[in-house]
Design a binder for these strands. Structure first.
Lengths: 116, 116
DNA sequence: TTTGATATATAAAAATCTTATATATATTTG
DNA sequence: CAAATATATATAAGATTTTTATATATCAAA
């Protein structure tokens, strides 16, 4: 898979993963990459090299639980949120919304506005 | 100065700097940090340790020009955009808007929507 | 049998960011 | 006069994050 080569993705990976898990209950790594690609029409594509370290980090921080399930002779590792993971998901989403608002105040065209 | 401790800032620094310079014509480092802080009501605060490497990188990439001016006995280093810097500013802003739209499609609450 | 889709994962390297630090002038406060 | 604060630029060490490359393996289709 090719990466979306999107510099803005930096810093949003944990938020994306936590939010998807909050919504879906449990997901496995490959499923997360496909879901992100589908829902953004290919605009955002996660690489495995970025995703797995994030999943492991979140697990290590106590936000995720894992369970391995054999499906069609292959192992799938499902990730789901702990209570603190749920809390973190909600918090990160609202922090992102605030950040975007702040960014809009920087990126909106400033016409005749006073700029102290 | 304290940093805004905002993980989402990752990957947006160049965009912020380029956009401000496109708007203001020329600015010096300290002025950029103050402008960002003021316009975002303290939501986004750039640290010098992050800002100066970005300014030097953009200069190195041919997006910025510098001129040193003595003001009140102190040196100020003004940064302004080259033509390719202007082009990059416009492009990065529109890329950011696209990215935010993609993020909204991930972060919006999914209620009864079909989720392939 | 080769390609493509499905599936997880690590390692090396590069890029980026945080934190701490150094330097220096001018103004305000005590 | 001294100390603190605001103004001003910059680097270095360290931590974190991300990219790129690689390894492994099953199943289905061409």
């Amino acid at each position: 898979m090719e990466a979306s080569n999107n510099e803005f993705l930096r810093g949003t990976l944990k938020t994306i993963v936590l939010k998807l898990l909050a919504e879906r209950g449990r997901m496995y790594g490959y499923e997360i990459t496909q879901s992100v690609k589908d829902r953004t029409n290919g605009e955002i594509m996660l690489t495995f090299g970025a995703l797995y370290p994030v999943l492991h980090k979140l697990e290590q921080e106590g936000f995720l639980l894992t369970e391995s399930v054999e499906v069609d002779g292959r192992l799938r590792k499902y990730y789901s949120l702990t209570p603190s993971g749920s809390a973190s998901a909600a918090q990160k989403v609202s922090e992102f919304e605030r950040f975007v608002e702040a960014m809009q105040s920087l990126l909106q065209p400033q016409q005749g506005l006073s700029m102290g």
